[in-house]
């Protein structure tokens, strides 16, 4: 009996080792330890063994069973390993490129806009928004730009026909015309009319000028404006904001300067220059970057704020111009062509 058991194990060992599939495995398992298996058959002979030999034989059979089981386990592990390996296929060449398109990219105007908004948010400005189709009131009248001002000329501003109706852009008076906003300052008026001071907003957005498209002009472009309304706001505060913005954006050594200028909605008014000789393609010592000033008391009076109590400043600049300066882009049309080779450069 002992020999028979030993022979069984010896026979099973190479058989199990040669198993490569689960059906073979199941068949082999059945052949040895299944209900009709060889070991099972031997176990059934236990009854014919003399009683005194049974404990020894029982131990022997158990050992054989354990031995077979461990051989089966090993065989199964080997099959599983082979199965997993079969899922793999040949090794990859990691140097081949991915065929997938991407990654996605943010447009450079978005990047510059968001960077400016982040810089301004740190000092208390939140982003405001308003319609691009505006009325004469919000774009001009409320900004102290009288009816005969050249900026209102049909030569410079896009108008909608008098019959045009916009359900969600309300007119202040029935006579006024719809137009495409020439600056985002209209958002300042809407914000002031809607809320109460203090106000600290930045309004980036698309604006329109009736202009020839060339390397530096575009029928639509983007502006970013800040409005700050509070008590005791001073020219010095305005200068401090500009210094802060451009030092944050371009580095600590960046300086700004104010040149007195004229805008209808600010008094005093300034044009803002900055030094940026470290930027690509910048040759002049001072670059004009935007306009600013202290909100004109007329504008406050028009939106119902007491000019004796409230004071404030406004600053505006072109986003394309800023992006061109920052990245060294020399043609504004690239922003609107969306050549993917262009778009991928700024992510």
């Amino acid at each position: 009996m002992q020999d028979t058991l030993t022979a069984l194990v010896a026979k099973a060992q190479p058989e199990f080792a040669a198993l490569t599939t689960r059906p073979e495995f199941e068949a082999a398992k059945a052949r040895y330890v299944g209900p009709n298996g060889e070991l099972t058959a031997l176990m059934k002979q236990m009854g014919t063994v003399p009683k005194d030999q049974r404990p020894a034989l029982g131990k022997l059979i158990n050992e054989t069973k354990t031995r077979l089981q461990s051989l089966l386990d090993a065989a199964l592990a080997q099959i599983e390993t082979a199965e997993l390996r079969a899922q793999l296929g040949p090794a990859v060449d990691p140097t081949l490129p991915s065929p997938d398109f991407g990654p996605g990219t943010y447009h450079p105007l978005t990047l510059v806009r968001e960077e400016m908004c982040r810089i301004l948010r740190k000092v208390g400005f939140t982003v405001a928004d308003g319609p691009e189709v505006e009325t004469e009131y919000y774009c001009f009248d409320a900004l102290n730009t009288p009816a005969d001002h050249p900026a209102r000329d049909a030569q410079d501003t896009f108008y909608l026909p008098e019959t045009a109706r916009f359900a969600n852009v309300a007119k202040k008076t029935p006579e006024e015309k719809y137009l495409l906003r020439t600056h985002t300052s209209s958002v300042q008026i809407r914000t002031m009319l809607k809320g109460e001071p203090p106000i600290r907003i930045v309004s980036p957005g698309r604006v329109y000028r009736r202009d020839t498209t060339d390397a530096t002009h575009s029928a639509n472009f983007h502006q970013l404006e800040c409005l700050y309304v509070d008590q005791n706001v001073t020219v010095r505060d305005l200068k401090a904001l500009l210094d802060y913005i451009f030092a944050s954006l371009l580095g600590k050594d960046t300086k700004t300067r104010f040149r007195p200028h004229y805008f209808g909605y600010t008094e005093p008014s300034f044009e803002v220059d900055l030094t940026a000789t470290h930027l690509p393609k910048v040759k002049k010592p001072w670059i004009e970057i935007g306009g600013c000033g202290m909100v004109d008391p007329t504008v406050f009076a028009d939106v119902g704020y007491d000019p004796e109590v409230w004071s404030g400043y406004a600053f505006g600049m072109g986003l394309e111009r800023l992006a061109m300066l920052l990245y060294g882009i020399d043609d504004i049309r690239y922003f609107y062509q969306n050549d993917v080779r262009f778009l991928k450069q700024f992510a």
Binding site: V123, T126, D237, K239, A240, R257, P260, P268, F270
Partner: peptide, 30 residues
């Protein structure tokens, strides 16, 4: 206010002293 500009023009805008930007808390959200 118009005379403020006249004074500042002749005084020189390059002499506006530097200052720390005032940064009060947000009054709203985007």
């Amino acid at each position: 206010i118009d005379l403020v500009e006249e004074v500042l023009r002749l005084y020189g805008t390059d002499k506006i002293p530097a200052a720390v930007v005032s940064s009060p808390g947000l009054v709203g959200d985007d």
